[in-house]
Amino acid sequence: MKYWLILLILFTSASTGQGFDHSHSAYSDVLQRFVIVYDGGMKSVVNYRKLAGNPKSLNNYLTQLSEISSADYKQWSESEQLAFLINAYNAFTLKLIIDHIDMFESGDAKSIRDLGGFFSSPWEKSFFKLLGEKRSLDWLEHEKIRVDFNEPRIHAALVCAAMSCPKLRSEAYIASELDAQLEEQMNTFLSDNDKNGIDTSGVYLSKIFDWYGEDFNNLKNYLRGYSKALADSQTERETLQGDFSIRYLNYDWSLNSPENR
């Protein structure tokens, strides 16, 4: 009788999501195997060709994500929820790319934008299940993450498979370290002078800050809080204290693969 009771408890725990691995260790294993970090840790690319040839670990992790119901999710802490959603966005983006690897290999696709249809973008495709329903990457970012969390640092964490994106970490986001991970991501992104910085014309930024400027609630003040990352010298830091101008760089949508480094 005790044996069957234990089995029932274990089954109930698993079926309600209580057994979900919030360390996201399966995903970290995928990232460590296929993400290449370079340029002093400021950038990364993904070996999509190798990942496409060895998709089992990623697919298993995505299955774990898809098995979580909305009711399960609501029982988690805010940090557990946000880590789950960021990892889901990045991991399903990897899935989207490797599912179309033949298009990249043939030259029919050069960026994620080439995976859309005549009347929709790739981010609008509902190609995966999450929280009980078919979802799209747009739903994850614009209807869930940006709506439910007042956290502008997510824009340095969500990676859309392009060279101008922030780097994809070689580890998963986890609740216990989420604040530190997001802070490191934003500092790293702003420290990458190919994407953000200060020159004689003023401050130049990634288009991400233009697209999502409203999320930063006074962008100039927000940037002042990251002056050590954005500015390379005391003179540049002084620039941030005044009424500086901002220009936005063109976005390189080339696939973030080793071939495009």
Score class of each variant (00 low, 15 high):
Ile6Val: 15
Phe11Ala: 15
Phe11His: 08
Phe11Ile: 14
Phe11Met: 14
Ser13His: 10
Ser13Ala: 15
Ala14Asn: 14
Ser15Asp: 14
Ser15Gly: 11
Ser15Cys: 14
Thr16Val: 10
Gly17Asp: 10
Gly17Pro: 05
Gln18Pro: 03
Gln18Gly: 09
Phe20Ser: 12
Phe20Gly: 11
His22Gly: 06
His22Tyr: 09
Ser23Phe: 06
Ser25Gly: 11
Ser28Ile: 06
Ser28Phe: 07
Asp29Glu: 15
Ile36Lys: 14
Gly40Gln: 11
Met42His: 14
Lys43Asn: 15
Lys43Gly: 04
Val46Thr: 13
Ala52Thr: 04
Asn60Pro: 03
Thr63Ala: 13
Gln64Ser: 11
Leu65Asn: 03
Glu67Met: 12
Ile68Cys: 13
Ser69Cys: 12
Ser70Lys: 12
Asp72Met: 09
Asp72Glu: 13
Gln75Ile: 06
Trp76Glu: 10
Ser79Arg: 10
Glu80Asn: 11
Gln81Asn: 10
Phe84Ser: 03
Leu85Tyr: 03
Ile86Ala: 00
Asn87Thr: 04
Tyr89Thr: 05
Tyr89Gln: 04
Phe92Ala: 05
Leu96Val: 03
Asp99Thr: 05
Asp99Trp: 02
His100Tyr: 00
Met103Ser: 10
Met103Phe: 08
Met103Pro: 00
Asp108Asn: 10
Ala109Leu: 04
Ile112Met: 12
Asp114Thr: 05
Asp114His: 10
Asp114Phe: 06
Gly116Tyr: 08
Gly117Ala: 11
Phe118Ser: 11
Phe118His: 08
Phe119Lys: 13
Phe119Glu: 10
Ser120Asn: 15
Pro122Asn: 07
Pro122Thr: 08
Trp123Phe: 12
Lys125Gly: 04
Ser126Tyr: 06
Lys129Tyr: 08
Leu130Ile: 01
Glu133Gln: 14
Lys134Ser: 11
Leu140Val: 11
Leu140Thr: 04
Glu141Trp: 00
His142Trp: 01
Arg146Asp: 07
Asp148Cys: 07
His155Pro: 00
Ala156Ser: 15
Ala162Gly: 09
Cys165Phe: 09
Cys165Trp: 02
Cys165Arg: 07
Cys165Ile: 09
Pro166Cys: 15
Lys167Trp: 03
Arg169Cys: 03
Arg169Gly: 00
Glu171Ile: 00
Ala172His: 01
Tyr173Arg: 02
Tyr173Glu: 07
Ile174Phe: 05
Ala175Thr: 05
Ala180Asp: 14
Ala180Pro: 02
Ala180Thr: 12
Glu184Asn: 13
Asn187Met: 05
Thr188Gln: 10
Thr188Glu: 07
Phe189Ala: 04
Leu190Glu: 09
Asp194Ala: 13
Asn196Tyr: 03
Ile198Glu: 06
Asp199Val: 06
Thr200Gln: 13
Ser201His: 13
Tyr204Ala: 06
Tyr204Met: 07
Leu205Glu: 01
Leu205Gly: 02
Lys207Thr: 13
Ile208Trp: 01
Trp211Asn: 11
Asp215Cys: 02
Lys220Leu: 08
Asn221Trp: 05
Arg224Val: 08
Gly225Pro: 02
Tyr226Trp: 08
Ala231Leu: 03
Ala231Pro: 00
Gln234Thr: 12
Thr235Val: 11
Arg237Phe: 03
Glu238Phe: 09
Leu240Trp: 06
Tyr251Met: 07
Leu255Val: 08
Ser257Leu: 04
Asn260Trp: 09
Arg261Pro: 04
